[in-house]
Amino acid sequence: MPINVDGSAKKSRKSKRAKPTQAEVADRHALYERAVQDPKTDAATLGELYRKVRKKAAVSLREDFCGTATLATEWIKGSKKRTAVGVDLDRPTLDWGIEHNLGNLSSADAKRITLYEANVLDGKGPKSDLACALNFSYCCLKQRKQLLAYFKAVRKSLKKDGLFIMDVLGGSETMGPDENRHNLGEFVYRWKQHFFDPLTHEMRCSISFYFEDGSKLAPAFEYDWRLWTMPELCDVLEESGFSKTHRMWEKTDKKGNQTGEFFEPKRIENQESWWTYLIAER
């Protein structure tokens, strides 16, 4: 909303500001979904990973830290049998998702999604084939005990042969200040790592959006995380009762481009920055 700083200039300002800036009319959730999420691909990949490990199709999905539930929405589009549960703490974000994502579904389809405004540690909702925690959201759990409690709760929320899939961020350059920008046409997306503390592995990051007219949403989202390493996550998963972990890695073609296909290597050379999936069998 335009702000009038000085009452006396109200009139002239008003006329000048008749047209709001791009930042003022932008919807940060929509921008986030465009910039960071690829829910269609994620839903397909989760389905494929489940089939790879369990040799059958997953029907029910639990999306922890679901935000706008865009992944849950894409999941149920994959088959008429599919159902999804989404859990998030933030009511306004859930409401945005109900309006913009679930709202675009037929009422019959929308009924196959249940959203809970709840803490993921509470383990609300029915047992599912697949549970996921994507976009590194579990990193807001900074104490090992908290992460352990969360993994125990997830494990309980899984069916007997259920799988838990999370994404993991890493690489030498994730452990320090860094910044990268992507021009997405109508706006520029900026990912910034403000600091990383090697003593605690705490990191602060933010997402900002910059527009052609010079306006910006900076920061649009802020994160206060502990950057967990792959072996740490596996150790905690094991301790919380998961029977087996699969540390996946994305295949690259001969030119080094990502293929969207994941395999389970024994050894990988570290990179400056990477993200991948970690699968845990209940």
Binding site: R247, W249, I268, E269
Partner: peptide, 30 residues
């Protein structure tokens, strides 16, 4: 940053060169 990559560093000492080589670092299990 350099502790978690494959890298080699040298130091000149009295009458010899010391070489520290991180031949492998595997990010999936450290």
């Amino acid at each position: 940053f350099e502790g978690i990559i494959e890298v080699e560093e040298e130091r000149e000492l009295d009458g010899f060169t010391y070489v520290w080589e991180q031949a492998k670092f595997n990010p999936i299990n450290h």
